[in-house]
Simulated assay, not measured.
Amino acid sequence: MPTIYKIFRDSEFQPLLAKGRTDGAPVDLADGFIHLSTGDQVRETAAKHFNGEDGLHLLALDADSLGDALEWEPSRGGALFPHLYRALHLDDLLWHKPLPLEEGTHNFSGLL
């Protein structure tokens, strides 16, 4: 069961909690899929796309449970990134936790 991750700002996470599903953040809507990261990629994703942002949520998903809607496609430097080609459902989550910002850096200790 490979675990993959999504980072949401609070304003993106709250609609998922309220509605039970989301089509993703603005970047996901623009690209036509939900951007996800592996455990090896998620720290770089946080640094590159959420640098210095507080109030983030880290969501964990089981890649195998997403079926054919999950595709692995080349992105940064040719690395394969998981992309979800359907709505993300609250039931898809293994867990979700705050992603703390400490001294300007996101602290993944105890999360991955």
Score class of each variant (00 low, 15 high):
H35G: 02
L16Q: 02
A47N: 11
L80I: 12
K19D: 12
G110V: 01
L56V: 05
R76F: 15
R21F: 15
V27W: 14
D64G: 13
S11A: 11
A18M: 13
D92G: 04
G104I: 02
F8I: 12
L17M: 06
S65K: 15
L111A: 00
F81P: 05
T3P: 04
D64H: 11
S11D: 13
L94P: 05
P2S: 08
L61R: 00
L70E: 15
P100T: 01
L112I: 06
D64F: 11
P2G: 02
G78W: 08
P98E: 01
L66Q: 13
D54C: 01
G39I: 08
L56Q: 06
R9S: 03
E71H: 14
M1C: 14
S75W: 15
D40F: 13
L80C: 10
S75R: 10
H83D: 06
W95K: 09
Q14N: 09
T38Y: 05
R76Y: 15
M1G: 14
A63K: 01
K6M: 07
H57S: 12
A87E: 10
L70H: 15
L59T: 00
F8R: 12
L36S: 00
H106M: 00
K6E: 01
G77S: 15
H106R: 03
G78R: 06
E103A: 14
E103F: 15
T22V: 12
V42F: 06
L70C: 13
A79S: 12
D92S: 05
L111G: 00
A87K: 08
G55R: 01
L56H: 02
F108K: 02
F13E: 01
K19I: 12
L112C: 05
W72V: 04
A87R: 12
A69Y: 14
G32A: 04
N51H: 14
G39S: 07
K48M: 11
G110W: 02
G77D: 11
G104M: 02
H57Q: 15
L36E: 03
H83S: 08
P26T: 13
D31M: 07
K97P: 02
D64I: 09
E71F: 10
H35N: 08
G52T: 08
W95Y: 10
D40W: 14
P98N: 02
S65V: 14
D23G: 11
P98W: 00
H96I: 00
R86A: 03
A63S: 03
G110I: 01
D91I: 07
K97S: 03
P26K: 12
L93K: 04
E103W: 15
T105P: 05
D28A: 04
H96L: 00
L93S: 04
H49Q: 12
P26I: 13
I7H: 03
Q41C: 10
I34P: 01
D23F: 14
A25P: 08
R21P: 05
V42G: 04
L94S: 06
G39Y: 04
D68F: 12
G78Q: 07
D28W: 04
R9C: 04
